[in-house]
Amino acid sequence: LGPKYVGLWDFKSRTDEELSFRAGDVFHVARKEEQWWWATLLDEAGGAVAQGYVPHNYLAERE
Rank of each mutant, 00 (worst) to 15 (best):
1 L>D: 13
1 L>N: 13
1 L>E: 14
1 L>S: 13
1 L>F: 13
2 G>H: 13
2 G>K: 13
2 G>R: 13
2 G>A: 12
2 G>D: 12
2 G>T: 13
2 G>E: 15
2 G>M: 13
3 P>H: 11
3 P>D: 09
3 P>E: 10
3 P>I: 14
3 P>T: 12
3 P>F: 09
3 P>S: 10
3 P>W: 09
4 K>S: 10
4 K>A: 10
4 K>M: 15
4 K>F: 15
4 K>D: 09
5 Y>M: 02
5 Y>I: 00
5 Y>C: 06
5 Y>N: 00
5 Y>H: 04
5 Y>W: 10
5 Y>V: 03
5 Y>S: 00
6 V>P: 03
6 V>D: 04
6 V>Q: 06
6 V>R: 02
6 V>L: 05
6 V>H: 04
6 V>T: 06
7 G>I: 05
7 G>V: 07
7 G>T: 04
7 G>P: 02
7 G>Y: 05
7 G>S: 14
7 G>K: 01
8 L>S: 02
8 L>Y: 05
8 L>V: 07
8 L>E: 05
8 L>G: 02
8 L>D: 02
8 L>N: 02
8 L>Q: 05
8 L>I: 10
9 W>A: 07
9 W>L: 08
9 W>E: 06
9 W>V: 08
9 W>Q: 07
9 W>P: 01
9 W>D: 04
10 D>A: 04
10 D>T: 05
10 D>F: 09
10 D>M: 05
11 F>R: 05
11 F>S: 02
11 F>N: 02
11 F>G: 02
11 F>M: 02
11 F>H: 07
11 F>I: 00
12 K>V: 15
12 K>D: 14
12 K>N: 14
12 K>Y: 14
12 K>S: 13
12 K>R: 11
12 K>M: 13
13 S>Y: 02
13 S>L: 03
13 S>G: 15
13 S>P: 06
14 R>L: 10
14 R>C: 11
14 R>K: 11
14 R>H: 12
14 R>V: 10
14 R>W: 08
15 T>R: 14
15 T>G: 12
15 T>E: 08
15 T>S: 13
15 T>I: 08
15 T>N: 13
15 T>P: 01
15 T>F: 10
15 T>K: 11
15 T>L: 09
15 T>H: 11
15 T>Q: 10
15 T>V: 09
16 D>A: 13
16 D>C: 10
17 E>C: 14
17 E>Q: 14
17 E>W: 13
17 E>M: 13
17 E>P: 05
17 E>R: 13
18 E>G: 11
18 E>C: 11
18 E>W: 14
18 E>V: 14
18 E>N: 07
18 E>D: 05
18 E>P: 00
18 E>K: 05
18 E>M: 13
19 L>N: 02
19 L>Y: 02
19 L>P: 02
19 L>A: 01
19 L>T: 01
19 L>C: 06
19 L>M: 10
19 L>G: 01
20 S>W: 06
20 S>D: 08
20 S>N: 05
20 S>C: 06
21 F>N: 00
21 F>G: 03
21 F>R: 00
22 R>G: 05
22 R>A: 09
22 R>L: 10
23 A>H: 05
23 A>Y: 05
23 A>G: 05
23 A>Q: 10
23 A>R: 11
23 A>K: 14
23 A>T: 05
23 A>E: 07
24 G>I: 03
24 G>Q: 03
24 G>A: 01
24 G>R: 00
25 D>I: 06
25 D>F: 08
25 D>M: 07
25 D>V: 06
25 D>P: 01
25 D>A: 09
26 V>A: 06
26 V>C: 08
26 V>S: 09
26 V>N: 07
26 V>D: 01
26 V>R: 06
26 V>H: 09
26 V>P: 03
26 V>F: 10
26 V>G: 03
27 F>C: 05
27 F>H: 01
27 F>I: 05
27 F>M: 09
27 F>Q: 01
28 H>N: 08
28 H>R: 09
28 H>T: 14
28 H>M: 11
28 H>D: 08
28 H>S: 10
28 H>A: 10
28 H>E: 13
28 H>L: 15
29 V>W: 04
29 V>T: 01
29 V>H: 01
29 V>G: 00
29 V>S: 00
30 A>C: 11
30 A>L: 15
30 A>I: 15
30 A>Q: 15
30 A>K: 11
30 A>R: 08
31 R>A: 08
31 R>F: 13
31 R>S: 09
31 R>D: 06
31 R>Y: 13
31 R>G: 05
32 K>N: 06
32 K>C: 07
33 E>T: 08
33 E>D: 10
33 E>R: 03
33 E>Q: 08
33 E>P: 01
34 E>P: 10
34 E>K: 09
34 E>D: 13
34 E>A: 13
34 E>Q: 11
34 E>F: 08
34 E>R: 10
34 E>L: 10
34 E>C: 12
35 Q>T: 12
35 Q>K: 14
35 Q>G: 13
35 Q>I: 11
35 Q>M: 13
35 Q>Y: 15
36 W>D: 02
36 W>Q: 10
36 W>F: 12
36 W>R: 15
36 W>M: 14
36 W>E: 02
36 W>K: 09
36 W>T: 05
36 W>Y: 12
37 W>E: 00
37 W>R: 00
37 W>S: 01
38 W>H: 03
38 W>S: 00
38 W>E: 01
38 W>I: 08
38 W>L: 09
39 A>L: 04
39 A>K: 01
39 A>C: 08
39 A>P: 02
39 A>Q: 02
39 A>R: 01
39 A>V: 15
39 A>I: 05
39 A>S: 04
39 A>Y: 04
40 T>K: 03
40 T>N: 04
40 T>G: 01
40 T>Y: 13
41 L>Q: 02
41 L>T: 02
41 L>F: 03
41 L>P: 01
42 L>W: 03
42 L>C: 05
42 L>A: 00
42 L>Q: 01
42 L>F: 06
42 L>N: 01
43 D>Y: 06
43 D>H: 03
43 D>M: 04
43 D>S: 06
43 D>G: 06
43 D>K: 00
43 D>W: 06
43 D>R: 00
43 D>A: 03
43 D>C: 01
44 E>I: 08
44 E>A: 11
44 E>F: 08
44 E>C: 10
44 E>R: 08
44 E>V: 08
44 E>G: 09
44 E>P: 10
44 E>Q: 10
44 E>Y: 06
44 E>L: 09
45 A>C: 13
45 A>E: 12
45 A>K: 14
45 A>H: 14
45 A>L: 12
45 A>D: 14
45 A>N: 15
45 A>T: 13
45 A>M: 13
46 G>E: 07
46 G>P: 03
46 G>L: 06
46 G>F: 06
46 G>N: 06
47 G>I: 14
47 G>L: 14
47 G>R: 15
47 G>E: 15
47 G>Y: 14
47 G>T: 14
48 A>K: 08
48 A>L: 09
48 A>Q: 11
48 A>V: 12
48 A>F: 12
48 A>N: 10
49 V>I: 12
49 V>C: 06
50 A>L: 07
50 A>Q: 08
50 A>S: 08
50 A>K: 10
50 A>G: 11
51 Q>M: 10
51 Q>Y: 09
51 Q>V: 11
51 Q>T: 14
51 Q>G: 03
51 Q>R: 05
51 Q>W: 11
51 Q>C: 09
51 Q>D: 09
51 Q>S: 15
52 G>P: 02
52 G>Y: 03
52 G>T: 01
52 G>C: 06
52 G>M: 03
53 Y>N: 02
53 Y>S: 04
53 Y>Q: 05
53 Y>T: 04
53 Y>I: 06
54 V>L: 04
54 V>E: 01
54 V>N: 00
54 V>D: 01
54 V>P: 00
54 V>S: 03
54 V>M: 01
54 V>C: 09
55 P>L: 07
55 P>F: 06
55 P>D: 05
55 P>M: 05
55 P>V: 08
55 P>Y: 07
55 P>G: 03
56 H>V: 11
56 H>R: 12
56 H>D: 06
56 H>E: 09
57 N>M: 07
57 N>Y: 10
57 N>W: 12
57 N>K: 08
57 N>S: 10
57 N>E: 10
57 N>A: 07
57 N>L: 06
57 N>R: 07
58 Y>N: 03
58 Y>P: 03
58 Y>I: 04
58 Y>G: 05
59 L>S: 00
59 L>M: 05
59 L>A: 02
59 L>Y: 03
59 L>T: 04
59 L>D: 04
60 A>L: 11
60 A>F: 09
60 A>I: 14
60 A>R: 12
60 A>K: 12
60 A>G: 08
60 A>N: 06
60 A>Y: 10
60 A>T: 11
61 E>N: 07
61 E>I: 15
61 E>K: 11
62 R>Q: 15
62 R>Y: 15
62 R>S: 13
62 R>L: 15
62 R>E: 15
63 E>V: 12
63 E>K: 12
63 E>H: 13
63 E>T: 13
63 E>M: 11
63 E>P: 12
63 E>W: 11
